[in-house]
């Protein structure tokens, strides 16, 4: 943990754990027909942490949930998703169920949504172990205890028989992480897991996640809107805007040399120490109306560097440096 794992971002020779090709998702119903993910492609190596960074409506959460094929019923999906050799979008329901939790598992912002209020923490974890690994109840319960100790729940034995509502917010989050890790997933999806937590607890959970990720070596996709959180956990970041990756690279590359005007604006408008008394720089305008995205670059209407060719076509992904690229006509 001394030198934080800012891993190599070079595409390694081994096959990546996750490949996503041209993922497109639109929500369609009687009242609306909106594209929310507009062609996202990426790959993720084993043990790598990718942060999807974006604001509400950027499509980051939908992109992440796609890896588990968790869509609302109105979703129309196209593209290819491969996780550890499984074609996620083509799997049968029963196969998918076996993969959820065992190969890919997920932690949420609000633990109460994924923990069942009528069962104890211990029995929920044990249940999951029994379902996915066919363990006996006794083995499963032992494993549950191990897991609670792993996520550093104090007096774990006592907490096994606690119900979710009896735990504090931080402990609940830990219990949910334990549940997610129950079957040693190869890919962990984290949907803003620390956003609802208090500052002093958020840092504890971030440290825990970093430690666990390091120890267990699982790949992680971490959705957040908070640059500070991304800086703590990410190897790589993908900045999303209007359903596209507008910039991706290693966390240091993106923080040191933000290349898309949106990323630059985001960094500048974030309130941090030392801006007191200074007028904040802002990104003008509002997030785009997804139902009526402008032609070309979706950020063009808010961009200070807009040129006529910005509205002609969606800019291609131009290379900034090794493993660092941005969808902007100004780059490359």
């Amino acid at each position: 943990m001394q030198i934080s794992p800012l891993k190599q971002t070079l595409p390694s020779a081994e096959t990546p754990l996750v490949t996503v090709e041209d993922l497109r998702v639109r929500f369609r119903s009687r009242d609306f027909n909106v594209p929310v993910v507009n062609g996202v492609s990426f790959s993720l190596g084993k043990g790598e942490v990718l942060c999807l960074l974006g604001e509400s409506g950027s499509g980051k959460s939908v992109t992440m949930r796609a890896l588990m094929r968790l869509f609302p019923s109105t979703a129309v999906v196209s593209g290819k998703i491969n996780v550890d050799g499984h074609d996620i979008l083509g799997l049968s329901r029963s196969k998918l169920r076996a993969i959820r939790g065992a190969v890919v598992s997920m932690i949420f912002q609000e633990p109460m949504t994924s923990l069942d209020p009528v069962f104890t923490i211990g029995s929920q974890i044990a249940e999951s172990v029994m379902f996915h690994e066919g363990a006996s109840r006794r083995q499963a319960e032992l494993r549950a205890l191990e897991l609670l100790e792993l996520v550093q729940v104090p007096s774990a034995k006592r907490r096994l028989i606690a119900y979710p509502h009896e735990l504090s917010g931080g402990l609940r989050q830990r219990a949910m992480i334990a549940l997610a890790l129950a079957c040693r997933p190869k890919l962990l999806l984290a949907d803003e897991p620390t956003t609802a937590l208090d500052a002093t607890v958020q840092i504890q959970i971030l440290l825990l996640l970093r430690e666990l990720q390091h120890e267990l070596g699982m790949a992680t996709i971490f959705v957040t809107h908070d640059l500070g959180v991304a800086c703590e956990v990410a190897d790589r970041v993908a900045v999303m805007y209007a359903g596209r990756f507008v910039e991706q690279g290693s966390i240091t590359q993106v923080m040191d040399n933000p290349s898309h005007p949106y990323t630059q604006g985001l960094l500048r408008s974030t309130v941090h120490e030392g801006v007191r008394g200074v007028r904040l720089e802002t990104i003008p305008g509002s997030p785009p109306d997804l139902a009526e995205l402008p032609a070309g670059c979706s950020f063009a209407p808010r961009c200070g560097f807009v040129r006529p060719d910005c509205t002609m076509a969606v800019p291609h992904d131009a290379t900034v440096g090794q493993g660092h690229s941005a969808r902007c006509v100004l780059v490359g």
Binding site: A199, T200, L227, G228
Partner: peptide, 20 residues
């Protein structure tokens, strides 16, 4: 507990432990 926003200067230990 404020996050430093610097991937090279990550927080190494929690300043306050436990929950309220």
């Amino acid at each position: 507990s404020r996050l430093p926003m610097d991937p090279r200067r990550r927080v190494q230990s929690a300043p306050v432990t436990g929950d309220p």
